[in-house]
Design a protein around this nucleic acid. Structure first.
Length: 434
RNA sequence: GGAAGAGUGGCCGAGUGGUUGAAGGCGCGCGACUCGAAAUCGCGUAGGCGGUGUGAGCCGUCUCGGAGGUUCGAAUCCUCUCUCUUCCGCCA
């Protein structure tokens, strides 16, 4: 949720930002008018309440209640109920609209209308050269018995799969590798060093977390990511939604809490199965396991002070790149433009990994810097060393989903359909070729 | 799922209709005492919203799990709901 005070102070900037992020239908003018309405009503209500309280205080003094004062109190009560009714509906309108406003994009974020205007900032790693025609992951996995799509469709419908055998084991190897790396102080220190972030970010390792896979409406809404129409599954008969990313169930962990500055940063490494409706993607990426209703994901979530937020973002990107480099996967980093960073984001980066069968880079990772957009709604605050109170900043980023498996089996495939396992995963898989 | 009990400030814990945003204690902060510390003593210790305004602050209002209701007036009474504890049932 964006800050109404900042909107009052910078109406033009906020309106322009909404347009840049694809929310041009939202009117700052309308919002400020609703804000005025509610503030006026709030004042009226406060004044009536004051009268009520004063009146009650006077009555209390005597032994027998003064009938005249009691009648006066009744009058106040009637007026107050009326004003409170108006206030309530004014508040509802106001908050409904305010919640729809996007977070302010940082100045460095390129302005763009679609994801095509994301800006590539670097490419790392060489695309593999094949002296045969490389197969798609769906072909490879199909021929090796690693994916069973028809049977998954039979029992759960489209966009579900059974992941089997060595591919399933490769998936767990990948996650185990990510968990080991991010919980290891030495690795963390190495990544910070390599990224030139020494002294700029904390060197505390991530804490591995297995979170609930669901969240209540209130918790999910506070993350700014509840997207019922396109992405989120609701559990019938329950006030619960299936997460579409571990971030959704970790970001609200400190709902209504005041953290001590000394506790920060809080770095969480969450693993969960994620569920997405994928509405509006009919016919897109239908082969194999690229776009599924259900997939597993390892995700970083950090809580920092405002001052540390940006460096934490850079740190999370550095982690993503470090792991991809160790695996030997070619990738490129894109600075997401205003239209693509998403409503709650102030800045965001996508990492796309080379997919030989598609002859292109495809999104495998994302890193989001949310500033205080989530924490304002979640009321997650920080008691600073000087005693002041400020909103925490949040960052989240992918460590690994299942998509890197696609990149691994395609980039490291042999002509006979076998796959060379990246060296860091050998110890988890117990073999070098699958 | 059934039955009973309980949810108060950072923590513990008073409080069953009227100066109670809330006694007391612990913790924490500042100060005194001390060479220093402990102990002791003194003072201070929630947040949101609105208004006014700034060295600061001041005024009003709301918040005692959450929502609603009764009342001139609710932490206190009523209804619903959530969570926790214990017992029963079921179960990976």
């Amino acid at each position: 949720m964006y800050d109404i005070k900042l909107i009052r102070e910078n109406p033009k900037k906020v309106q322009q930002n909404a347009i840049n992020k694809g929310y041009g239908d939202l009117s700052v003018e309308e919002l400020l008018s609703l804000d005025d309405d509610r503030r006026q009503l709030q004042q009226q209500v406060d004044e009536l309440r004051e009268q009520r309280n004063q009146n009650a205080k006077q009555i209390k003094g005597g032994g027998k209640p003064d009938q005249q004062l009691v009648d006066q109190g009744k009058q106040i009560k009637i007026q107050l109920a009326e004003r409170e009714g108006y206030l309530q509906s004014a508040e509802e309108k106001f908050w409904d609209l305010l919640k729809r406003f996007p977070n302010m994009a940082l100045d460095m974020v390129p302005v763009g209308q679609t994801e095509d205007e994301n800006v590539e900032i670097r490419r790392v790693g060489d695309q593999p050269k094949f002296d045969f025609t490389p197969k798609s992951h769906a072909e490879l996995a199909g021929s090796r018995g690693w994916l069973d799509v028809p049977r998954a469709v039979k029992i759960a419908g489209s966009r579900f799969v059974y992941v089997k055998g060595d591919l399933a084991r490769l998936e767990f190897a990948l996650f185990q590798y990510g968990i080991d790396a991010l919980t290891n102080p030495k690795k963390i220190a190495e990544i910070i060093e390599q990224a030139g972030l020494k002294g700029k970010v904390s060197d505390v390792p991530y804490t591995f977390v297995l979170p609930p896979a669901v969240a209540t409406t209130a918790a999910f809404e506070a993350t700014g990511r509840l997207n019922k129409q396109e992405q989120t599954y609701k559990i019938e008969e329950e006030d619960l939604w299936l997460n579409a990313s571990a971030e959704h169930v970790m970001a609200p962990m400190y709902l209504n809490e005041i953290l001590d500055e000394k506790e920060l940063p809080i770095r969480l490494l969450g693993y969960t199965t994620a569920f997405r409706r994928e509405a509006g993607t009919y016919g897109k990426d239908t082969e194999g396991m690229f776009r599924l209703h259900q997939f597993n994901k390892l995700e970083m979530e950090s809580f920092t002070t405002a001052e540390q937020g940006m460096n934490e973002h850079l740190f999370q990107i550095a982690i993503q790149e470090y792991l991809l480099q160790e695996l030997g996967l070619p990738y490129r980093v894109l600075e997401k433009c205003t239209a693509d960073i998403g409503r709650p984001n102030a800045k965001g980066v996508d990492i796309e990994t080379w997919i030989p069968s598609q002859n292109t880079y495809r999104e495998t990772h994302t890193a989001d810097y949310l500033t205080d957009f989530q924490t304002r709604a979640m009321k997650t605050r920080v008691r600073m060393a000087d005693g002041s109170l400020e909103l925490a900043h949040t960052n989240d980023a992918t460590v690994f989903s299942e998509r890197p498996l696609i990149a691994i089996i395609e980039n490291f495939q042999n002509e006979d359909g076998t796959v060379r396992v990246p060296e860091p995963l050998h110890k988890y898989l117990g073999k070098e070729i699958i």
